[in-house]
Amino acid sequence: MTELLKIRDLVVAFDAFHAIDGLDLTLEEHEVRFVIGPNGAGKTTLIDSITNLVRPTAGSILFAGEELLGKSEYAIVRTGIGRTFQKPSVFDELTVLENVDIAASFRLPFRSLLRRRKGISDEVAQTLGSVNLTDQSESPAGSLSHGQKQWLEVAMVLVQRPRLLLLDEPVAGMTEKERLHTGELVTRIAAEGTTVLVVEHDMDFVRRFAHKVTVMHEGKILTEGSVAEVQSNETVREVYLGRPRDARGAAEALT
C-alpha cells in the first residue's frame, strides 16, 4: 500500500493556544480512518488545515507526495480532496440538483460554464440516487431537513470523485435510520476506492462501521488501532471519562 496523506509535526496556533500541537498522521491509499476525540480535541481543525481553511503554523502535509501547505483552498480541492463541514453548508437558494450540478462541473473549463446546463448527467443522477434525494432534486436545498442537507453535502463531494474524502461528523443530528444509511454509504464509497477520513463523535456509529481508529486529544494523537484496541485503552477511557490525570503526559507516554 502507498501513503496517500502524510502529515508531520503539524502545529496550528491561535494566538498562544495550540489547537493542533505537533501531530503526525499517515493515511494509506483506500483506507477508511475514523478520528475520534473529545470536544475541542482539534479534529475539525485537522480537517481545516488539510483544506487550508486554517493556516498551520508549522509542519507539513503531503498529499500523494505533494505539499499542500501554501496552496489555496480551491487548488487543494482540485488535487482531489473533498470535505464536508460540521455544520451542513449547502446553497439554500439553489435546488438540490443545481447544488450537485455545480459541484460536478468544477473541472469544466470556465468558458463552458457560461452555457446553460442541458439535462442531467448520469453521474449527477446516480449521486442524487445514492443519497436518496432524487425526489427532492427540484426543491430548494434550503427546504431540506438537517439530515438531508448533510447527505446533499456528501453528494456534492462524492460527485467530484475525490481521492481523499474528509467527513466532519457526518451523522451528527441524524436519526438512527439515517445514520445506518450514511454508514453504509461510507463503506460503499471506500469499497469503490476512495480514501476516507471520518471525524465522528458518536461511539455507536464508530463501533459499527470503523476498522481503524485514531484518537485525538488536546491537539495530539493519543493512540491508533482497531476499535477494540482503542476501547480497551486506559488513557482513552480516562480522556473520555475525564478522570483527573495529566492527559498530556499520557499522550507522550503512548507515542
Binding site: T51, S72, Y74, V77, R83, F91, D92, F106
Partner: peptide
C-alpha cells in the same frame, strides 16, 4: 449565498 463554501468545491 456563501462565497467561502464555493472555494471548497474547487472554484
Amino acid at each position: 449565498d456563501d462565497e467561502d463554501r464555493v472555494r471548497f468545491l474547487g472554484y
